[in-house]
Simulated assay, not measured.
Amino acid sequence: MNASDRLRKNIFSSIEAKKALLECDNAIQTFNSAVEKVINCYKKGGRLYIAGNGGSAADAQHLAAEFVSKLAKDRAPLPAEALTVDSSILTAVGNDYGYEYVFSRQLEAKASSRDVFLGITTSGQSHNILKAIEACKRLNVESIVFCGKDGGLVKGLTDNCIVVPGSMTSTIQEIHIVLAHTLCECVEAALFE
């Protein structure tokens, strides 16, 4: 397969996955509920914590930047933090307790019941996201997860699980970015219009 054919194939896969999401009423309704949770979090003076691994870690940082800076309009900054950026915390917790605790330990130190945690995991199986959700339950922190495939283990654990269609990690991550930008856009519209 040459580069042009591969590009066409990947664009078609992306379009098909997005069409499938449009037809998934459960995912759309869960997303709507998740947006309301984040809006209410900010109205109560809370903050958004975001985490993921690999490309999803980059997505967590990207989304935190959109909330703190802006997405589409000048506005006051909104408190959001990617739990993926402090290499000293990540390596200390990973070394002392295990990599599966790198996000939950930070939530235990920082989060309150006014806050929301957003986990991003294409497989729904990331152990550190699962531990973070367990910490959220103990701390009475609302949790949201963007995942893919069949939802994995997080599907039955989190308060708001948005399972996106697509069989390839890259396609799932593309849809996660659409969800993240739409989340931020909805929050901006609700709080600043």
Rank of each mutant, 00 (worst) to 15 (best):
R6W: 07
F12Y: 15
E16Q: 14
E16C: 15
K18Q: 01
E23G: 14
D25P: 08
A27K: 15
A27S: 14
A27W: 12
T30Y: 06
T30E: 11
A34V: 07
K37G: 01
K37C: 03
G45H: 15
N53S: 11
G54K: 14
G55W: 02
S56T: 12
L63R: 02
A65G: 11
L71R: 13
A72C: 08
A72H: 14
A76I: 06
A76R: 13
P77T: 09
P79M: 01
E81R: 09
A82G: 13
A82I: 06
L83R: 00
L83F: 02
G94Q: 13
Y97F: 14
G98P: 03
E100R: 10
V102D: 03
F103M: 07
E108F: 06
K110G: 01
A111H: 01
F117Q: 01
T121V: 05
G124D: 02
Q125L: 02
S126E: 10
S126F: 03
N128Q: 04
I129Q: 07
L130E: 03
A132W: 00
A132Y: 01
C136S: 13
L139K: 14
E142K: 08
S143R: 04
D150I: 08
G151M: 09
G152M: 00
V154S: 09
T158K: 03
C161R: 09
C161P: 12
P165Y: 12
G166C: 05
G166F: 01
S170L: 05
L183N: 05
C184F: 01
C184Y: 01
C184G: 04
C186A: 14
V187G: 02
A189G: 01
A190E: 07
E193Q: 13
